[in-house]
Nucleic acid binder design. Sequence first.
DNA 1: TCACACATAGAAAGCGCTTGCTGCAACGCT
DNA 2: AGCGTTGCAGCAAGCGCTTTCTATGTGTGA
Lengths: 349, 349
Amino acid sequence: MTVTLADVAARAQVSPATVSRVLNGNYPVAATTRDRVLRAVDELDYVLNGPASALAAATSDLVGILVNDIADPFFGIMAAAIQSEIGGPGGRAGGERLGVVCNTGGSPERELTYLTLLQRQRAAAVVLTGGAVENTTHAAAVATKLRKLADAGTRVVLCGRPPAPADAEAVALTFDNRGGGRELTEHLIGLGHRRMGYIAGPEERTTTRHRLEGHRAALAAHGIADDPAWTVHGRYDRRAGYEATLELLRREPSLTAVVAANDTVALGACAALRDSGLRIPDDVSVVGFDDLPFSVDAVPALTTVRLPLSEAGARAGRIAMGREEAPDGGIVTVQGELMVRGSTGVPKG
Amino acid sequence: MTVTLADVAARAQVSPATVSRVLNGNYPVAATTRDRVLRAVDELDYVLNGPASALAAATSDLVGILVNDIADPFFGIMAAAIQSEIGGPGGRAGGERLGVVCNTGGSPERELTYLTLLQRQRAAAVVLTGGAVENTTHAAAVATKLRKLADAGTRVVLCGRPPAPADAEAVALTFDNRGGGRELTEHLIGLGHRRMGYIAGPEERTTTRHRLEGHRAALAAHGIADDPAWTVHGRYDRRAGYEATLELLRREPSLTAVVAANDTVALGACAALRDSGLRIPDDVSVVGFDDLPFSVDAVPALTTVRLPLSEAGARAGRIAMGREEAPDGGIVTVQGELMVRGSTGVPKG
DNA sequence: TCACACATAGAAAGCGCTTGCTGCAACGCT
DNA sequence: AGCGTTGCAGCAAGCGCTTTCTATGTGTGA
């Protein structure tokens, strides 16, 4: 029924071993023989059996990419960049690998299950993107799993995700969330803001915590009291931003600025402010984080911190493929860049 | 080094066959034996070797999801919905399958290569999302490939993609792009617009063509002449929308409305209009397509056609898993819903 | 009590490929 | 001319699992 290596070998009048070597190209094969084999492959329309070679060679050409939410461009952009580098079709030279984007939905259990699935497939590499959940027992479970993967020869790269202490020797590209958060708030302080609400992401997430810490560091540095009531947690989506803003306004109607955990949340915040009859930035300034493509199109355009998502993803992909040296020490912190736009201004009051 | 089925068998004092049967659960195994095996699996921290079972069983638990642009929420949303249904971790019951999101970047070659890669992996199913390229030779190549996949037992489902004539018996969920396009334009005509620019997507794409046809059908139905100069093609991104709008304005400064191929493009159009000193909808109305999450947040909120991306994706996922009957005839057309919002109004002039 | 069906476990034959090792020319060296 | 190299191709042993077929023990009806 299906064409096998042996069929090709028979047709090309060589041994299966030779065909295998031609296909893998890591063993000297005479040019004329190679051509004969290649022709046979073509004529028979042969397609290698992936599982069989993975079994025999003890490695597969799958590369796992774990994301928290594939519907969120933050992850979509990184995933696209990673995939473009792991040499899938259209990628650079080298083996054709299959980039597998796995959507964990931010759930620790799913993350773990996906890692097991990838381990089961003997994945060549795994890239974990985005913030991690800061639950000790879960973090330990993930670290254990990652260690096992690494031991089994799977390359592990973190992208936009701080290495947990237990992750030890993993290669990591992390974003300077703390620094970005601080810059954003200092920008607002510089404009004269003192009463700023903060819409944080879900609790127990590294990204959430780091950005919030940056915000607080800025407040502290300028001697501004940090009223816990001015911080509201929620998911990283528009709706959460909308509701959190309404809640913030209820708690403290005199706010002059809203600092959102990311651009998507900021958009929701803008909508809530508008619906409350407030003008941006005249009445209230708003800042986001990430600088997703749509942020520049918001009205007014969003002041935010640009994260080089695409570049970081590409680099992570290259490292995962072993095409680029892992950085010294294994960890690199990628800086964001403050983008001042129309959504922030001098407070009226 | 690594734990194998045999190790588990030895530990549980049963034969490898029994362990396999316990793990696959499709053969009667006495409860006490099963427990013993399961305990051994646990103690040994055994992880099934995917390639090996795929080889032996001649099927794998991979499901391919092909998208044109993973960074675009249009695809991200569908991909997320599909993945949530194919029973990956967190999905419903049933085998744990690994959803593989493949980013074709809209390139026919990549699409083909990915299909080959999936064929090589003996994927259990493949879901193709989004518009197809209307290049005859390429379409034929894809159809051939799909037929081969189907013959090899891979379930093939199209989601938001019209079946090419050659795709014959494939199951397809397609969006009513033509109908949506028509509705949008009729809405504008109803408001009194007569001079409307159209920003189309890339040529040679089914989605592009269908939406444009809907637009033209509406014009024709109302006896409005269709000036080809008022249609500009471009990519499906913000920037293309921005530039196309500028171009349109240059060609015909008296336009009262801009019809964009999708919401992302519409956002770019809005930016261009604003930068040109025009107000929306007072000077120019704008409509999009898809109703992506951010569209309601645009200022003014975008009038568009809502496509049930999530629902369609979920259904496609279920069909791919064989958990839902394929529709009669194999093809279902999913309707969009016109969402009238602030970006459209009565023309001034 | 004996034959027979039923339930459960094992033996063993692959699945299609990779790769270490062996075999054998043709070649260059002294 | 003799012998060690070098360059290519083949042999065959698995890789770890699934599954058919067979064997065994237990319960049933006559």
